[in-house]
Each structure stands twice: as structure tokens, then as C-alpha cells.
Nucleic acid binder design. Sequence first.
RNA 1: GGGCGGAUAGCUCAGUUGGGAGAGCGCAGCCCUUACAAGGCUGAGGUCACAGGUUCGAUCCCUGUUCCGCCUACCA
Length: 888
Amino acid sequence: MKKKTLAKVYEPAEVEKEWLERWIRDGLFTAETDSQRPAFSMVIPPPNITGSLHLGHALNNTLQDIMARYKRMRGYNVLWVPGVDHAGIATQNVVERQLKEEGTTRQELGRERFIERVWRWKEESGGTIVNQLKRLGASCDWTRLRFTMDEGLSRAVKEVFVRLYKEGLIYRADYIINWCPRCRTALSDLEVEHEHRDSFLWYMEYHLADSSGSVTVATTRPETMLGDVAVAVNPEDKRYRHLVGKTLTLPLAGREIPVIADPSVDKEFGTGAVKITPAHDFNDFEVARRHGLEPLRVMDAEARMNENARGFEGLPRFEAREKVVEELKKEGLLKKEERYSVLIGVCYRCRTVVEPTLSKQWFVKVGPLAGPAIEAVEAGRIRFIPKNWERTYFEWMRNIRDWCISRQIWWGHRIPAWHCTGCGHITVSATDPERCEGCGRSGISQDPDVLDTWFSSALWPFSTLGWPDRTVEQELFYPTSALFTSFDIIFFWVARMIMMGLKFKGDVPFADVYIHALIRDAEGQKMSKSRGNVIDPLVMIEKYGTDALRFTLTALAAQGRDIKLAEERIEGYRNFANKLWNLARFTLMNTEGARTGDVGPRDYTTVDKWIITRLSRCTKEVSGAIENYQFDVAAKAVYTFLWHELCDWYVELIKPDLRGEKGEDRKRAASGVLVTVLKDTLKLLHPFMPFITEEIYSYLPSTDTYIMRSSFPEPRGEYPAEAQKTESVMDVIRAVRNIKTEMNIPPGTELDCVCFTRDASAAEALKEGRDHLKNLARIGALTVTEGGERPAQAAFAVARGKDGGPAIEVFVPLKGHVDIDSEIKRLTKELEKTGRDLSSVEKKLSNDRFLERAPRDVVEKERQKLNAILDKKAKIEASIKRIRGIGE
RNA sequence: GGGCGGAUAGCUCAGUUGGGAGAGCGCAGCCCUUACAAGGCUGAGGUCACAGGUUCGAUCCCUGUUCCGCCUACCA
């Protein structure tokens, strides 16, 4: 327990640094492998090694950390595995950019030296994101930090590749894929993003070889016509039926191509005749395949026209497009140019327009893997939260296409396949082979391609636990308990992990998938550097503290909705942290001579029982909400309890006790209760705001060294009767305050107060609470009776708790402060409100069908409501009458 | 084209078995009451997008419409 007085304002910087070091030093984040306690495990969605912490990371890891800390406090042996992704294309781009500045290229450097160079870069700059995550307070087991290019993980990748290949689930084939001409690599379908762009639809005329006529085709990509192998029409299309089977002369190229009939052609679009370029269009590829037509590739790796495009060779594709259009125009074959919005695919990394290209690539045959993955979710062995994401998952899984996994880059897991120069056989092996397994010759060379980065990510939940070896970690922690991620990588990552987990571990990789929000700016725009609307979490941490940032993200993270974040929100929760800080400061100022150890029910006053009741409710709500992944609900529950119940009311109510006005015993008990409540509250808050809670806890008389190691609070019991009594007192205080404000009476003015109530308990509460009324409503004499002569010249209000507590008539005699007009105005307003309530209830109760069909308790409730309203209305009316009487 | 989500106070959003509309911020007035002005007290503000339907009763359930997002897709 530290001993120093707290500063007036909470200063996070030093505090955060200190606790982070101590937590790690004392191994508080480290999972045990010899524990009997129940296990709870998660794997972090590995951020890119090139990355820097953004708000998405901050939210994702804050939520995981809340769960991890909560589960630890609940007694679980928690393993949260951290790690970083090697991010093939992104990382290679970073290093290539460096090389460019140095005036060289990776090709000049050579593969081996380039890879060395990337590793060096990783050692120097790759730790950034890890340190940023630590700074966020992420209680990952940092002793188990993994990297997707680690030796162990690389072994897992090879093992998986080999086994899938042997089973025929990985194959190599000539197929049309998405090609990025800038990155000069193949991309998977998911790595292509779609954009609308303004362009044209060009109508080009192809003549029949026998000059007996022509066909006009419409296209958005004229340059690919050089690779056309056919023109297709719908077999149902009467306009073209007579042409099917005839031969056309392809303009500019002079080749002869057939007219074919294929049902995929839309009669309504364009001219109803479409050119078929199988080497550069997905649909055309399929059509050509159905018709046994040989594709013709007309572009090279950088999307320049190749030797098959005679006359255009060497031209970049878009220049070729202009030239093709121009030449067709010259020959009078361009019939029309029509403005058209095209949907194009761009590389998710560099935004270059992707070129669909026929090439030899490696694929995963996904169908057989998808089946069990769908079944696991259907059967509820994996649960998506919120549930509606399951639909999205199914939708994609049921329409999945084979996954292109080879990338023509250097940084990544090299494909464990060796080509024989002699017999052409491919040897696939987890260990580097000496010779071809087909012919036994030694002339073999490894496939130059590397694997899609997501291939290794797909193995993450078990590769990080030591697979393919048998390890204790897998025994204890697989399947993991929960995965936290955002919806944009359900396909990239979540689905693939499920497939691989089921395939290689025979079990799902996680039980729950919690899909959290995406963060946008205050206007709802996605944050991006180009928009300049990025809020940097690190800057926010500097400015407001980590806890404030964490709490903000959490409080805004309602399920199924994006977060719109404005800096003011963070400021608001920084204020909350400061509120807590000052509560602690106040508590410590009053703990001298406090009872050590927990105080118990015997010590509780009515007011104590109220705050204990509220605390118990809050405790239940917080743990229930966290268990259900409703982190925002949990955060708001503590927020309201701490600020608006504990600080606004309880502390104010017991201040006299703490000053010793009720004797030494009560003083010590009161401060004991305060400490107890504060401690529980800190524990409730610790998963959300780890630093400030740990700091404050260290000043309190505690049995645990760390709040992080303490147990999550259990409810301390509820006292409904006492809670109601306190609420009554609070209601009267509010009524008096309201009267003073609305009557323009300075709050400090001492006025007497007369209360009428027939409820014995409420009457007792008010008598007991006399001092509270004096202190918090600043009243003079208090009279409490069942009823009787109503005070003349008095302002009036009916105090009644929200949950239908007993009615209390509150009179504040205004001798010397009478402002008849404003009181009448105030009461009239109140009367109008009551009248509105009345008519809605009366309407219900006068409806026979309501009386017949509504449940009895509902009807009874309405009757009581009616009585209460009528009662209140009568009282206000009487009061108005009396006041008028004064004026006359 | 298919799918998903949203429309509630000036702004951002809660509202989970259909039964008297809530919070935070902002705004207005008052208050330096020795934990906190990064504070306290009080208050104003809403035909719950629109039209139907189910029901005794709908912000909530169903249908349709409008507007706004997002995901997905081989109409060239």
C-alpha cells in the first residue's frame, strides 16, 4: 500500500508506464501449463508487421483484454496468445520502397539477400505494433509472442500444404486468376476490391469471313479483342440463330473465330452478342472451356500487350485500348461509343486495376473443407455473436470458389514443391528433398512462389500452440474459447481458420466468434489516411490516457453497429477517469482510522444498505453483460453507478458521518463502507480501465498485491426496503431543490419543509433522513405527518419514486419568498403533464376489451396508476387553489 | 442481381420475453457547497421515417414504401 496524497488531477502517463512494467515483470499475463484451474484462451488477430496501432486494433484488443482480465479475476487460467503477421505483399512493398530510395531493386539484390534484408527490417521496425499493444494494456502472454514466419509456424505451414496436396486438396493448374500488374502477383478473389468508374461501352463490328454479313459486339475492354477466340450469342436469340457456327474475321488481328451459342449470354445487354476472351475474363474463360476453345493470352506480367497482339506489342493495356479504338474507327468498324459506368477490380494493396489473367497457379480445393465448416456453425459448435453474421458466413461458404494460394513474390512461406528439370514431376515435401521422387534425379528446383499470407493465418489457432507437435498448450487451450474480430475478415480469416482447424485438429478452432464494430469518424466516414480523418489512438493515449480511450471505445461498442467516434467522447470519459480519481482522493482523506477489513451488514445504516443494494445490482449487471459480450452495457452500468449513485448521492449523504458528526463508531463504519464499495467498484472497472484502478487500489488497504489478481466482486446482498426508504429521501430532496430553482430562490436559502405521507415506512425514512434533507436540500425545520392542515403560502410538489414508491406531499412554506405567479405557472405546468398521463390511463381503463383481455396484473397496475394520478392531480389542484387564495 | 443493417431529443446512440419514451454530449439557468469547474444543482427538448396489418394495446411483431449505409456478384 502506497502512502502519499493523490494529486488533484489524474496524470496517466507515469502511472501507466509503471504498472505495465510491474505486471509483466511479475508474470501476471503469463498462462500456466500446470494449473488445475479452468482454461480460457484466445488468439489475437495478428496485426501486420508493417502496421501501426489504429483504432480498429485498439478496439479489438481492448475488448479482448476486458474478457481476459475478467476471466482471470473469475479464476480462470487465461492464455491470450499475441502475435504478428508477416503480411507478404505489404511488407515486400515497404522494403522495396526502401531499396528504390537507395537506387536499387530486389531483382538486383537477388532473392536471398532480399529476404535477409526483409528480416533485418523486421528486427529493426517490426516491434512497433507489439509495443503499442502493450501500451494499450493488452494483457497478452508476451512470453509466447509468435510470428507467422517463425520456424515453428513455418513447419506447420509446410505440414498442412503437404497433407492437403497428398489428399488432392491442393492442386496446380492453368486457370484464370486476378493478376496485379504492379505487384506482379496473383491475388485471391478476396484481395480484389470493386469500384465503379466512368467509362464507355464500345460497339465493334466483326465481319463474317465470307463477307455475307457482320455481328456487332459491345465491350468495356476493346484492347482484349486481340485475344478473342469467339463471339457468343444466346441459343434462344432468334436474331443470331442463323449465324451460329459461322466464322468471323477478327478485325486488326485477321484471325478467324467462330460464332458460338452459350446460355450465359444475356440477350438484353448490348447487342446480345459478346466477344469471348478467355485469357483475360473470368466469364469468357468458362465459356471457352465449355466449348473447347483455346485461350490466347495477349498481355504480359505488367499488363503490356505481348507478342500475340501483333502491331500492339509492348503497349500498356490502356494505351492499347486507345489505339484499338482508333484503328477500328479508321476501318469504320466502331459503331458506337456509349457512356457507361463499369465495375472494375483493383488490388487491395496498391489500387492498381487488376488484370484477369490465365496462368499456372496453386489452388486449394475448398469444397470438401467447406462442408464440415458449415456444419460446425449449423450445429452450434461455433457461435457467432451477434448471430446474424452466421448468415453472411453461410452465404459465402456455400458459394465458395477454389482459393488461389500462390503469390509471385519473395517474402512469405515458399511453396514446398520441387520441379524436376528431367521428368517434370513435382515433388511436394515438408523437408527439402535431394532428388526427384519421380525419376530419382537430382536436377530439381523449388517452386519460386510463396503462399498467400492468409494461408498461414488460417492455421493460427493451433500453429501458435505448437502444432504439428503434441504440446500441453494444445491439450489445455485448444479449442480456444473466443475469437474477437471485425466483420471485414470473416471470409479472409475466420472461415479459413474454421476449415483448417476442423481438418487438422479435428475440432473447431474456437467456440465463440464475437464480431465487433468498425470505427468511423464523427460523420460516419471510414477513417483513412487519404481522407485525413484518422484519429490516432496513440495521440489520444498521450492526451487523455489509455484508460479513457479504452473506456470510450468500449462504451460505444454496441453490438451490430459501427462506432462513430469524435474526440469529445474521449474527453468525456477522461473526465470520468478523473471523477474516479477524485472519489479515491476523497475516500483516502477519510480513511484514517477506518475499519480495516470488510464491514458487514451489522454496520449498515439505511443509506449504506441502499448503496450496497445498488452496488449488488451493478455487479450482477456487469458480469452478466461481459459474459454476453455486451461490453457497452457493462461499461455504462459501472459509469452510472460510480458517478450518479456513489458520487452524487452516497458520498454526499455520508459526509456528515465521515466528519464524525454521528460519533466515532459511525465515522469508522462509514469510511469502512465507503472503502468497501470503492474497492468493489474498482474491481468491476478494472477490466475496462486497468491502469487507474490498479493505481488507486495500491493506495487502499487491501489483501491482494494487485487488483489484477483479485477476485471479481460477488453481489453483497440487496435490501429493497431500506433502498426504497433512501429513494424516498432522495425524492424529497429533489422536490425541494426543484422548487427552489424554479422559484428563483438561491439554493442556500433555508426554508422549512412539511411532508405528508400515509406510508409509515416513508414517514420513518424522512424522520431518519432529517439531516440528509437539511444538508442536501438546505432546509430548516422538517415536519412529517400523515396529513392535516396544509401550510398556507407554500410551494407544493408530489414526490414519488420512479418505481412507484409511496406518495409524499412536499410543502415548502414561502413566507417572504412568495412569488405567486411563478408558483402558479410551475404548478399549472405540472398539472398539464399529469393531465396527459391521466388521459392515456383513462383511455385504457374505459376500454372493455382491455379489461377483458389484458392480463390481470396489467389491469391492476393501470388501476393503481390511475389512482395515483388522480391523487396527484387533486393535490396539485388544491395547491393552486390555495395559492390563488393567498393572492386574493 | 443477391444479402445484411440502419432511420428514436440539436448530435451520437440505448431501449432482449409488445403494457407509463432513456443515456451521454450539446444547450439554458443557477452555484467557486474544503474529493473533483475535467465539478455540482435544476431544466428545456421526441406524432419513435411513412403507409397498412396482427393485437385489448405496437418504438418493439408482420407486409409494403421512401431514404441512407455496408457486404457480395463473371451483364460483356
